[in-house]
Design a protein around this nucleic acid. Sequence first.
DNA 1: CTGTTAGCGCATTCAC
DNA 2: GTGAATGCGCTAACAG
Lengths: 344, 344
Amino acid sequence: MGFKKNRIKLEDIANKLNLSIATVSRALDQNPRVKQSTREKVIQTANDMGYMPNQIAKSLSSGKTNIIGVIIPRYDEPFFIEVCRGIDHYVSTHNYKILISSSRNSFDSEVENLASFERGLVDGIILSPTHETKTFSHIKNVINAGIPVVLFDNIIEEMHGADHVLIDDKKAAFSAVEFFIKKGKKQIAFIGGAKEKKVFKDRFEGYKEALNTYNIPMNQNLILHCNSLDRKSDNIEINSFFNSPQIKPDAVFTCTDNYGLLTMKTLLKLGYKIPEDISVIGFGDLGLADVFVPSLTCVAQPSFEMGQKVAELLINQLSEPENINHQKKVITLDTKIILRESTP
Amino acid sequence: MGFKKNRIKLEDIANKLNLSIATVSRALDQNPRVKQSTREKVIQTANDMGYMPNQIAKSLSSGKTNIIGVIIPRYDEPFFIEVCRGIDHYVSTHNYKILISSSRNSFDSEVENLASFERGLVDGIILSPTHETKTFSHIKNVINAGIPVVLFDNIIEEMHGADHVLIDDKKAAFSAVEFFIKKGKKQIAFIGGAKEKKVFKDRFEGYKEALNTYNIPMNQNLILHCNSLDRKSDNIEINSFFNSPQIKPDAVFTCTDNYGLLTMKTLLKLGYKIPEDISVIGFGDLGLADVFVPSLTCVAQPSFEMGQKVAELLINQLSEPENINHQKKVITLDTKIILRESTP
DNA sequence: CTGTTAGCGCATTCAC
DNA sequence: GTGAATGCGCTAACAG
């Protein structure tokens, strides 16, 4: 039993003032059933003695910790950090804190993290599933255990049993490609990530649909699905893609900002002029899209807002009288294209 | 009193097996003082019944939460995220989790966050002080309350009462500027941030000392201390700095990667060739220093390692028999220059 | 090896 | 208005 020094507790205050613990507790709790003069005395002595309530004891007694658990696939992705900022921003005004952990893009780790949160440490959970996550039962279990879960990004059909927030990836990609087409582009390349990941699949769908809609034949040589997980390898893949002689795109739609920047880097090195010879659109609008020369036109994803929204959904569930028959909510946020120098 | 559904507890298992709660607890706890057959029965039933230990109850009883509180000045700075990754990496192997909160560069908020952690939620605290933080008493208080605190980055003298991890900012800046000088540069510009911030002050000292050492006169027109707090305003400041006609530097040392990238952006727009006309060195080596065209030479700061180290110091304190007369440790990590295209 | 008992610090019901 | 008693779920002495 490790004890934090000689912490002051309610009992100490009670003894000093010849009051009961209950009264001291009530006095500190804004409970009206206590004389004004007593309250003042209690508050005064509490301050003098340097009293700090024990959050753990409070939690055990009250059944709530005022902590929200957040599970993201990785830390080093500005998108997730922005979402976390949004979450933090919202919940902090409701007296909650967030406990962030990373699943490191591993399903097993996601399950582990959930289990750890289920041990009563958090009142609710916000989760962004990994691309390995194909099933929903681990999440369902937590919800059944009485802990609300709200999801964002990368949601698959099976998960529609929980509230979630996402953007319309297909539509967003469609509009970016449509933008190119309307500018007269014919050879539009697509650069995405691992095909198993829902968001990349959807964006690819949007790409295909745009081409279809405008009767532009799809060319497999203009399509790249990066499989690597770090930027260095991405760079290599993208490099060799554009170095292939068969490829002569006049526009590139990339599924992340990083892909967009790496694409521009590669193209510049190859002597292309952007946007004169070729245009590029990225996806996300975080990080340094606006710093690069030329700056990168992007599909802007409302990350911060997504965090706020997902937090709002969770807090709402937490303050509902009882989660009986909670009506599942799906929120789709809008994206928009931010025009910069990489497009005409 | 909000209750999590009908959670299985030790008592339920005990009842079902006609055992005492204590025995069940011991069986689940790897305690050797329990018959093998009993242990197996208990573990089996616990699994069958879907038992999840209540972390809060455990914490109250044991006096430790296995949570480390982390306070950083802001989320949207890759440096801090990297440090957090390092912390997480280290503590997760020691069965700890991290609770991150941001002081939003405000001293008051830092104090608040500390107080909140002092309420018994965390076993130890890792803190990176804001640049507003000029005093140490709020930290001292927490330490006196028996909660170990380890600091990193932006440490001032007064704080030497706590373990901390930092880099030698002055030396790092000195070596970068020395690098320029040895390449024959004479007009070396300095771009830093708010002068109140310790790290910027130290880097400026290093800059001055390098010039001094090599008998190069310092030119006030070549020095910029950015006062803004966001990238957009930084951009404006840097822009107007280089647009001033008096300025003709042949090299620029910047105190962050972002300043470095913004500087290159500005210079490229002005028609400079990098590194032919002018060289640039950034500081940090995070984010997209290697993606930019040209890629940015940097003083590399070992952020992830810093996180690991600071976590190690904290965990060590937590596992010491008693914090009696703990010998304060100061760890200085090495930096190195990563050569890229922005320098000859 | 197992059971009994007594906390951990606070909130809350029920008396007075 | 205030106090005494009970419980939150689990750990850890102390017995046996």
